[in-house]
Amino acid sequence: MPPYGQRTPLTYSSERVPRFTRTERALHWIHAIAFLALLFTGIAMYSQTLSVFIGRRYWVRFVHILAGYVLVFGPLLLSFFNWRTIRKDMEEMDLWDRDDFAWLKRPWRILWGGETVPQGKFNAGQKLNAIFSAACIVVFGVTGLIMWQFEHFPRWLVSNAILVHDNLSWIAAAVWLGHLYLSVINPSTRESLRGITLGWVRASWAKRHHSKWLEDGEEGTKARFL
């Protein structure tokens, strides 16, 4: 591993560990850009004040639908190029051990950077977030399609779709704010931002937050049923 650099505080290990491949980072950022475009165009159409201020409803709606396409088909397209990596991560998200459930019982420990339950490549919160996000793609996709192609669906279904779509947006926005806080602001977790941008993290941080991943490497994905 190349040294981290001159500005590294002595208390940190200078060793880098590769965290996310280019495929994983592309997946994250395609999702992120599409999500933000959807969130802001969605708010622009939902809020009376903003929609009156911005006007151009057709174009806001157009960007919203376009970003919806990216959100749904971006990950599929990437899977087509590098299914191995994405499949491996999905496997990680799917498999939960006792440590994951123990982590989930006291998730706030992550906030002050104290000792947490040993975790694999993703901690239980990250798994939950990824699973929720994946489910959101489906639910937003289906309800959005019903709203968009309203003339082919019964009216009660269209009203229900709009309610689910709107109210789930608030939940998704809140989850995004939490995600933003943990990855950019919270001192004990913001190292992870390096992983999803540059692709590597410091070994000392990985040892504290993802010790099983650091120790087992790929072994950690091997499944044994409960």
Binding site: D97, I131, A134, A135
Partner: peptide
């Protein structure tokens, strides 16, 4: 060791959300 025992819980959660 306990931490080696795993369950396919993620997909159940995913289905639950759906």
């Amino acid at each position: 060791p306990k931490e080696k025992v795993k369950a396919r819980f993620g997909r159940r959660m995913f289905i639950g959300f759906l």
